[in-house]
Amino acid sequence: MTERAPECRLDLRGTPCPLNWVKTKLRLEEMEPGRRIEVTVDQGNPARNVPRSAKMEGHRIVHAISRNGAVRICIERAEESAP
């Protein structure tokens, strides 16, 4: 159990910014701190913006893996999502 598996996966390919982040955020809000979500987004702006927004809210990017024109981003939920 070195790498905890993501609690849920969202395929957000084709979902434009900022809706891809909004949908990710809504899921993160429902999760316990420390749990993980894996979202798949398009390369380019989505792959840049979603991790940046997640980090701005204090969440941790566990990894981001590029494959076949999409990027799989694993995000670990922060302790506190609201200030």
């Binding site: 900022p18 809706l19 909004v22 955020k25 809504l26 609201a82 200030p83």
Partner: peptide, 13 residues
């Protein structure tokens, strides 16, 4: 409501 939800102080909740 995306522009609300994006706000850290608002969110889905």
């Amino acid at each position: 409501y995306s522009r609300h939800i994006i706000l850290r102080e608002v969110g889905g909740k």
